[in-house]
């Protein structure tokens, strides 16, 4: 590195439109391709769906404007209420992934030999596609070949046909959905626990804090960012549940495991006919529910940004 530093000749004074305006133009130049794609495939379709929901349309022929009739029909549609109710159950029960993930993270937050491999193996259900998770659990529950009933038999319970019974089917699917979601929350908390300030923990220990008290008053407050992300991804995941319902039951038996995301698909793209307008109306309802959470998330981000 002993080479003499030859100073480059200073650049000529800025000339031309680009030179003098590049600070203003450059951001838009870099944004343009991404924004165009995003506008065409994401932003515009949201408005189009609102628009389509005001029409009766089979996807091919002429669309007929019918105002709010699709929404009025929703109010009298028992399948819509079943889906909505199931979505609510998903939303509430799916949140169990958060304490579940925290529990496993606490269990694995040690430094014994091979623990890294254990952490990866506990995490990897999240990497598997939901389709395969759905299949795996459907077979696990299956009364003729599944392992669930023999296990229940050991405790003198069962046999049960979880996916065949309208009263249990949604819980069965949610349990399957929890499996990868718990793994996700676990990894969030493991990362969070890594960053917990050891001095605070030691100080609290000297003050006699341990167990639950330590967890509640010292550890959890420091895990706030992890908890926030866990809540966001879990809520969004719950409202997005489609793959599992489709793979495990097709919404059955007797439509009892439908959720809004699945019902919308069924109405618009299935053998029961292509009712695009009605489907769009269901999608709008789902979108509005989701919007509450999106707004909350953006509001938090905005508050943080101001802190910069």
């Amino acid at each position: 590195m002993a080479a003499p530093i030859t100073s480059e000749p200073a650049p000529p004074p800025a000339r031309g439109y680009w030179r003098s305006n590049q600070m203003r133009i450059a951001p838009w130049l870099f944004l343009a391709p991404g924004m165009v794609f995003f506008a065409i495939y994401v932003v515009l379709p949201i408005f189009q769906s609102f628009h389509i929901s005001l029409y009766r349309w089979d996807g091919l022929g002429e669309a007929r404007y019918i105002g709010l009739q699709n929404y009025e029909r929703l109010l009298d549609d028992p399948a819509f209420y079943t889906s909505l109710w199931n979505n609510l159950r998903w939303l509430v029960l799916y949140l169990l992934a958060i304490p579940g993930g925290l529990f496993i993270a606490l269990f694995l937050n040690q430094q014994v030999r091979g623990i890294r491999l254990y952490k990866s193996l506990f995490f990897f259900p999240f990497v598997i596609s939901q389709v395969v998770v759905g299949l795996v659990f459907a077979w696990f529950y299956n009364p003729s070949i599944g392992l669930l009933n023999p296990i229940l038999g050991l405790f003198g319970a069962g046999p049960v046909n979880i996916l065949g019974n309208p009263n249990t089917v949604t819980y069965g699917i949610i349990a399957a959905g929890l499996w990868p979601q718990v793994a996700y929350c676990m990894i969030l908390y493991l990362t969070g626990l890594n960053a917990v300030d050891p001095e605070q923990v030691e100080a609290a220990r000297l003050d006699g804090a341990k167990g639950w008290k330590m967890l509640w008053y010292v550890i959890l407050p420091q895990l706030r960012p992890a908890t926030f992300i866990a809540v966001v991804v879990t809520v969004i995941g719950a409202l997005r549940s489609f793959d599992m319902v489709s793979v495990m039951t097709n919404g059955g038996p007797f439509g009892s495991s439908r959720v809004l995301a699945y019902y919308m698909f069924e109405v618009s793209l299935s053998e029961f006919g292509f009712r695009m307008g009605y489907g769009a109306a269901i999608a709008v309802v789902l979108f509005l529910i989701m919007m509450v959470y999106i707004a909350f998330f953006l509001w938090r981000m905005w508050r943080e940004e101001r802190g910069y």
């Binding site: 769906s49 409202l239 618009s268 793209l269 709008v284």
Partner: peptide, 17 residues
């Protein structure tokens, strides 16, 4: 925010269009 919000929307609202 447009990018962030768009990333969270339910797929179904985009499906038909």
């Amino acid at each position: 925010f447009m990018f962030v919000a768009g990333n969270f929307v339910p797929f179904q609202i985009l499906m038909v269009p």
